[in-house]
């Protein structure tokens, strides 16, 4: 068995979308050399542009020196060729949430990187074990689940698949800490920790609404003022996107073989059907289109 390489210097990031660009930025700011890969050149350019903008604003606010911002940016190399990931000690995959795409990426990456490199996936809803099975060495495949926005959110869930070695877990935890993150370890189960434990926050609130106990405004108020939460469940669904939240509910529910605790609500489905998806569509549980 080939063990994880304790010394991570070069990190590959696959996919330069919302998560990939954030992860690339965090890695570069933490001193790692970054190879950022995407299939779409314009998206790579856009990602570098947004990272540069973020770093510039951070420097303006005095959160880091202009030199540090400049250095971080120069550590990122973009590429359209997966083969450029060859020197990477750790590759973090943040491609679209499709098992087909991820399986073929892990198969291909297996033949590109050194035999002691670690392959990590940022998947939110797919099984780490299933993705790992597509790689040559499943013991070197691990989940590294960042939260959006990756540069700001401190949490990283480090997910052990069925075959992931303890050494690999240890190296990834150490790397996450070096990135200034707070890693927690979890087994490969649907929703891992956060996306699972948070389900009742939304589903119980939806049940209360459906039963006519209180309005979204009142439930949000009681959760904010009664419990010190920053946002109530309906405000948070509007922020996340009601479609995204509904998809997460359905995914956990289906993966747990329709465990009743996770049963989604018809109210979510109706909101998605009506295209009232929350802030992004101007209307969800609340209206945002009247604001200017």
């Amino acid at each position: 068995m080939i063990l994880g390489n304790a010394e991570v210097r070069t990190i590959g990031v696959i996919g330069s979308g919302v998560m990939g660009s954030g992860i690339a930025q965090v890695a570069a700011q933490s001193g790692y050399a970054v190879r950022l890969f995407d299939v779409d050149e314009t998206l790579l350019e856009k990602a570098v542009g947004s990272i540069a903008g973020f770093l510039r604003r951070a420097a303006e606010k005095g959160k880091l020196t202009p030199e540090a911002a400049e250095n971080a940016l120069t550590r990122i190399t973009t590429t359209l060729s997966l083969g450029e990931c060859e020197p990477c000690d750790l590759v973090i995959e943040a491609a679209p949430e499709s098992i087909g795409i991820k399986e073929s990426l892990f198969r291909e990456l297996s033949s590109i990187v050194r035999s002691d490199a670690i392959l990590a996936t940022n998947t939110s809803t797919l099984g780490v074990t299933q993705i790992a099975a597509a790689a040559t060495y499943p013991e070197r495949v691990v989940g590294m689940h960042f939260f959006n926005p990756a540069p700001l959110m401190k949490l990283v869930e480090v997910i052990a698949g069925a075959d992931t070695s303890d050494e690999v877990i240890g190296t990834v935890i150490e790397t996450a800490r070096h990135m200034g993150k707070n890693p927690v370890r979890a087994k490969d189960t649907p929703g891992f920790i956060v996306n699972r434990v948070a389900r009742p926050f939304y589903l119980e609130a939806l049940r209360l609404l459906q039963d006519g106990i209180a309005s979204p405004e009142t439930i949000d108020l009681l959760v904010r003022k009664g419990g010190g939460f920053r946002m109530g469940p309906f405000e948070l669904m509007d922020l996340i996107g009601i479609d995204v939240n509904y998809a997460a509910s359905r995914s956990v529910y289906e993966q747990y073989f329709q465990e009743p605790r996770f049963r989604p609500s018809i109210l979510q489905q109706r909101m998605v059907d009506s295209r009232h998806l929350g802030r992004k569509s101007g209307r969800g549980w609340y209206r945002y289109d009247e604001e200017t």
């Binding site: 939260f147 959110m153 401190k154 949490l155 869930e157 707070n182 927690v184 370890r185 979890a186 087994k187 189960t189 891992f192 920790i193 956060v194 699972r196 434990v197 948070a198 419990g227 010190g228 939460f229 920053r230 946002m231």
Partner: peptide, 22 residues
């Protein structure tokens, strides 16, 4: 119960991953 994670890690994850007060 299902040994998905340790108690401290579950609490940390909910505070940092989704801003719960406790």
């Amino acid at each position: 119960t299902e040994q998905v994670a340790e108690a401290e890690d579950i609490d940390t994850a909910m505070k940092l991953g989704t801003n719960y007060p406790y």
